[in-house]
Amino acid sequence: MTHFVNFTVNGEHYALDVPPYYTLLRLLRDRLVLTGTKNGCSAGECGACTVLLDGAPVNSCLVLAPEIDGHDIVTVEGLAHDSQLDPLQETMIELGGTQCGFCTPGILIAARALLDRSPNPSEDDIRLSLVGNLCRCTGYTRIVAAVQEAAHRGRAA
């Protein structure tokens, strides 16, 4: 038995049949070939699979694909527009907020959700918003600096 779902990913509409056990993560990676969203733990512990579901960050490994009917999803691929990187992507590159890069898509999505709801976050706000995103390489200092700089550029624009 499958479920028919209508949904939007990065502004593009989809209508698909999905098995009841399929996760949003698997749907994104296997069916839509949006591989920026990473499978780190499959248990909602690492944040590598974070996407925006109707503007809120969620672990896509914990969302069943039939639950996305009628919803809007944004993945890391959806942050850039017209070949222009999101300011968060730019500052992460400029300030060295990435090392291996595996956690970066989830961190970018969590940070984008924060900046969308709070354009002037404190360092504590940034750190709190990234609590569910594990990074084993950077130590978070440069990640936090990149989010702060993106917020500053957003205010200056």
Rank of each mutant, 00 (worst) to 15 (best):
P57Q: 02
V58N: 12
V58L: 08
C61W: 06
C61D: 11
V63Y: 10
L64A: 08
L64Y: 15
L64I: 06
A65D: 07
A65I: 05
A65C: 10
A65S: 14
P66H: 08
E67S: 12
E67D: 15
I68D: 08
G70S: 09
G70Y: 11
G70Q: 12
G70R: 13
H71K: 15
H71C: 13
V74M: 14
V74G: 05
V74K: 07
T75W: 08
T75C: 09
T75M: 04
V76P: 12
V76I: 11
V76Y: 03
V76D: 09
G78N: 04
G78C: 05
G78T: 00
H81V: 01
D82P: 01
D82Q: 14
D82A: 15
S83K: 15
S83R: 15
Q84K: 11
Q84F: 01
L85G: 14
L85V: 05
D86M: 05
P87L: 11
P87W: 04
L88T: 00
Q89C: 04
E90I: 10
E90F: 01
T91V: 03
T91C: 13
M92V: 13
M92Y: 13
M92S: 09
M92E: 03
E94A: 14
L95W: 05
G96W: 10
T98Q: 02
T98F: 00
F102G: 03
C103S: 08
T104M: 03
T104D: 01
P105H: 03
P105S: 03
G106R: 06
G106T: 05
I109F: 02
A110D: 06
A110H: 06
R112Q: 12
R112A: 07
R112T: 01
A113F: 06
A113E: 12
A113M: 12
L114D: 01
D116E: 15
S118Q: 15
S118N: 15
S118E: 14
P119T: 08
P119K: 11
N120Y: 08
S122P: 02
E123W: 04
D124P: 03
D125V: 04
I126E: 03
I126V: 13
L128H: 13
S129E: 08
S129K: 07
S129N: 10
L130Q: 06
L130K: 09
